[in-house]
Computed example of a mutant assay.
Amino acid sequence: GPTIEVVEGDRVRIFVSNKLPEHTSVHWHGQRLPNGMDGVSGLTQKAIGPGKTFVYEFVARRPGTFMYHPHADEMTQMAMGMMGFWITHPKTKHPLIAEVDRDFVFLLNAYDIDPGSYTPKIMTMTDFNLWSWNSRIFPGIDSLNVRLNDKVRIRIGNLTMTNHPIHLHGHEFMVTGTDGGPTPKSTRWPEVTTDVAVGQMRQIE
Rank of each mutant, 00 (worst) to 15 (best):
I48Q: 01
F104L: 03
P21S: 14
F54T: 05
L108H: 06
R188E: 12
A197N: 13
R11V: 09
R147N: 08
S135C: 03
V6F: 11
K91T: 03
W131D: 00
D142S: 09
G81V: 14
R32Q: 10
H69L: 15
R11C: 04
K46S: 05
E8Q: 14
R102V: 03
I141F: 07
M80H: 14
G81F: 10
V105N: 09
M201L: 13
N18D: 08
F128L: 00
A98N: 10
G199C: 08
D195L: 11
F106Q: 04
P139T: 08
W28E: 08
H167G: 05
G39K: 15
M123F: 11
L20P: 00
P190T: 12
S135T: 06
H29V: 15
I141S: 00
V6R: 09
T76P: 01
P190G: 05
M201T: 14
D10N: 15
R147G: 07
G9M: 11
P190C: 02
I87T: 14
S132R: 09
F138S: 05
M78E: 04
N158L: 07
R153S: 11
M67N: 01
T178L: 01
E22F: 12
K91W: 04
E205K: 10
G180W: 00
M83E: 09
P139F: 14
T176S: 14
D112Q: 14
R61K: 12
G42C: 07
W86I: 06
I137T: 11
I166W: 04
K91V: 06
P63N: 10
D114T: 07
L130S: 07
K185A: 12
Q200I: 02
K185S: 14
F15T: 06
P182W: 05
F173Y: 09
G199P: 04
S25V: 05
T194I: 13
P115I: 00
P21R: 13
G84Y: 12
N134Q: 08
F66V: 01
V192M: 13
D142M: 06
Q31H: 15
W189P: 04
V12P: 02
M201C: 11
A197E: 07
I204G: 01
S132Y: 01
I48F: 06
Q200N: 12
E5D: 12
L108S: 02
N35Q: 12
V12K: 02
G140T: 10
V152I: 10
I14W: 06
K185Y: 13
P63H: 06
P21I: 09
